[in-house]
Amino acid sequence: MSSQDNINYCRIAEAINFIKDNFKSQPSLDEIAEQINLSPYHFQRLFTDWAGTSPKKFLQYISIEHAKKLLKGHQASLFDTAHETGLSGTSRLHDLFITIEGMTPAEYKNGGKDLAINYSFAKSPFGNILVASTEKGICYMAFSEDELISISELKKHFPNATYRKRIDLFQQNALCVFTNDWAKLDQVKLHLRGTDFQLKVWQTLLKIPQGQLSSYGVIANEIEKPKASRAVGTATGSNPVAFLIPCHRVIQGSGNLGGYMWGNTRKSAIIAWESAKVDS
C-alpha cells in the first residue's frame, strides 16, 4: 500500500468512526467531510471508492441497524425508535425502511405476522434443498445439510410467520429447474423482499444465461453503478433463493470463484453441471 493509500485509508476509517459515533445527530456530508479536512466533493468520491457506497447510504445503514435493534422484541414504539435513531419523525423512519429493507417499520416489527409459508425438502444434484413459498411465490430456497438448522435459518427471515410442511405448485415448478424441465420455468413465481438495490442486482443475475459466467464488476456496470462492485458482491451474497437466482454464475474479475453462501465446492459443481448441460 502506498503512503497516499495509507493516508486515504486512515481518513475513511476516521469518517466511518465519526458516523458510527454521531449517527443520532444525522450529520450532513459537509459536517463529516470537515472532520477529515476534505471538501465535500472529494470526500464523497473518496468514501464511495473505498467503502463501495456513499456516505449518505452508509449513514442510513448504521441508522437502520440501530432502529432494527430497538424494534426487535417490541422494545420501542415507532415514534420512540425514530427519535432514538435521530430521525425527525415516523415518516422518515418509514422512508428509511422502505429504501433499505424493502418493507415498512411495522412489517419489520411484526416479523412476517399473518404470513403463511409452506416449506418442503427435496433432493437435487447438489444435495438436499429447502424450498419455501407464500401465496405469491417462492420466498426462500437454500441447500440444506441439516433440516433443523435450515428451518431455523428460514425462520430468521420471517420469525412470526405461520409455517406448514407442505409442498405446493410454486415449489413443484421451482424444482423443475433441476430436472431440466425448462418449459415450466416461466411458471416459477418469486416473492422477494429486499432493497431497491438488491432487487436490481437479483434481477440482473436472472439474465445471465445458463452455462455462462459474469463478474461483480460487469453486474455493477449493467445496473449503472460502475463503482459499486463491493456492494454488488454483498447483494449477491444475500440472495435468499439458491440456484433459481443464479448467484453461482458470478465470479471475481480475476477469474477466481469468489465466495458462495453454500460453499465453493458446490459452486464449482453447479458451474460444471450447467456447462455440461449446455454442451449436450
Rank of each mutant, 00 (worst) to 15 (best):
Y140K: 05
P55F: 05
L70E: 00
S124T: 14
K123P: 04
I129Q: 01
I129T: 09
G102M: 04
L38Y: 07
F126S: 06
I36G: 06
Q75E: 12
S124Y: 02
T85I: 04
T81D: 02
N6R: 13
A51P: 04
T90F: 00
H42V: 11
A122N: 12
M141P: 01
H74K: 14
I100R: 02
D30T: 13
S77D: 09
K68T: 04
L115A: 01
D49P: 00
T99H: 04
D80N: 14
A142V: 01
Y61E: 03
D80H: 12
G112Q: 05
L93T: 10
K69Q: 12
E147M: 11
D95P: 00
E84V: 00
Q60F: 08
K123A: 15
D30F: 11
S144Y: 07
G86W: 08
I32A: 06
K72M: 12
R45M: 13
T48C: 12
R45I: 14
S144W: 06
S28K: 13
T134G: 03
L70M: 10
L70Y: 02
H74S: 13
L148Y: 03
D146N: 15
K57E: 13
D146S: 14
D21E: 15
K20L: 14
F43S: 07
N118K: 06
R92N: 14
S25M: 14
A33H: 02
S28L: 11
L70W: 02
N17D: 15
K72P: 00
C10Y: 05
S88A: 13
L87P: 01
Y9W: 08
L29K: 03
G86N: 10
I32K: 00
E107N: 08
S120A: 14
P27C: 07
G86L: 04
A122L: 10
A142H: 07
G52K: 02
T99D: 09
I16V: 15
L29F: 06
I16W: 00
I7A: 10
E84A: 13
N17Y: 10
L29V: 04
I129Y: 03
T134A: 09
K69A: 11
C139R: 03
H66S: 10
I129W: 05
A82W: 06
G73N: 13
G86V: 05
F97K: 06
L70F: 01
F47P: 02
S133F: 07
F47T: 06
A132S: 11
A51M: 14
I7C: 08
E145D: 15
L29C: 07
V131H: 02
K69D: 11
T104H: 03
K72Y: 11
F143V: 02
F97M: 00
M141Q: 07
T85R: 06
L71I: 08
T53R: 06
S120V: 07
T85G: 01
G102Y: 02
M141W: 04
L71K: 05
F143D: 03
G137E: 08
T134I: 01
K20E: 15
A122M: 12
Q44N: 15
